[in-house]
Nucleic acid binder design. Structure first.
Lengths: 211, 211
DNA sequence: GAAGAAAAAGCACGATCGGTCGTGCTCATC
DNA sequence: GATGAGCACGACCGATCGTGCTTTTTCTTC
């Protein structure tokens, strides 16, 4: 059998650059609309030079989803994890998402919101990867809600699944409105709605005190 | 100037068939991914035969958006309008949307949810048409909420804009989850959440009595 | 610095893209 | 039933798509 591939330091760096640009391009053209030629042009590379790193378009898509997940984790999940467990983390993860949008990390808003709708009708590993990530994010929010419930920061009759569903909806509505109208007011509205829904005093500091 | 075009009855019919198929295809491949060749193949027509009806891809996209709006109105808006004005219409419009999803009118779920995210980064008449429709639907929900408020079917301190935003979010979350997982449970959850949010007794009849 | 491997470019392929043109077929009208 | 306009077709355009194969450049390691 052919021995293990030994990537060169040089190659790793360009591969990273390719994947990062691929994620950005995918939020504009979609994961399917992402084209190797377009990608190569943006990187001042040849088509085949880009292509050789992946071997197929699907591998490129998978790499892009993976990278998008890493970025999402760094920009949205990680900031929430440093907040106090429970209700504060629920607020923090939503705020981090809205920050993530207003920061314009990607031109097309949330990568996964777009990718989920685009790949929903295209069974395969790419859709699976997206669904897996989405499940993980949902589970994270739900866990925050469960802890908040245990700490009596939410009404005892609150259903964690329903609350997770609602917060997910607020996040999606914020993304859709912001992408379509580029109006930060949509994000302010989203922050207000999140706080009202969770019974937290409006804005000011993001650190929530136990009620 | 060349006089007004006088379409033939025959042509109108095929044009309708083209546009309807275009809407369906667009929920799978996206408005941009929609290809004339693919469309022609599905209709057992020639590419040029299809193309002649529109003159440009953008015109085809605009026709598809228009048709999607008509379908959405018939399947979601119209059923809501026959309900009793106020709170009942709020519930009815959400239920009609979920019915619209479960009915599988389009393979890719809500046409406008996907189109809004896809065209958000593509300024032009198509994006404008989508934004216009979205504004209209938002205004409709808001109007339902205002009437419900006037009829004291909702708490007096309820903000119509915030409520509209939340319901829009629930709708988007239902669509995203259903598209990604094809699980009707997402829609049941959405119906439950809508009712709980509006303070309506769960399921059974959709006709709401004034509280 | 020479040898070997990895990275990137170059080139070409079949398919498909949106779009144009010319030619008949078909319907509606007189 | 002739005539003119609308309709649909097939052929074709240049461009771009994803994907291979071959060659050249660049790094790494002895």
């Amino acid at each position: 059998m052919p021995g293990p591939r030994k990537p060169r330091a040089d190659g790793e760096r360009t591969r990273e650059a390719i994947v990062r640009e691929a994620v950005s391009l995918a939020t504009i053209d979609g994961l399917e609309g992402l084209s190797i030629g377009n990608l190569a042009a943006r990187l001042a590379m040849s088509k085949s030079g880009v292509y050789a790193h992946f071997g197929s378009k699907q591998e490129l898509q998978l790499a892009a989803v993976d990278e998008a997940g890493r970025i999402f984790h760094a920009e949205v999940v990680a900031p929430a994890l440093v907040a106090a467990p429970g209700l504060a983390q629920l607020v923090a993860v939503c705020d981090a998402f809205f920050d993530h949008l207003v920061r314009h990390t990607f031109p097309g808003g949330c990568f996964f919101a777009g990718a989920a709708l685009e790949m929903g009708t295209r069974p395969g590993p790419v859709k699976e990867a997206i669904a897996t990530f989405q499940s993980g994010f949902t589970a994270l929010i739900r866990q925050f809600a469960v802890v908040a419930l245990e700490q009596h920061e939410l009404p005892a009759d609150e259903d964690p699944d329903a609350l997770t569903f609602e917060l997910n909806g607020i996040i999606l509505a914020a993304n859709a409105n912001y992408v379509l109208r580029s109006d930060p007011a949509a994000l302010e509205m989203a922050r207000r709605v999140v706080r009202r829904r969770l019974g937290v005093e409006p804005s000011s500091s993001a650190r929530a005190a136990v009620g």
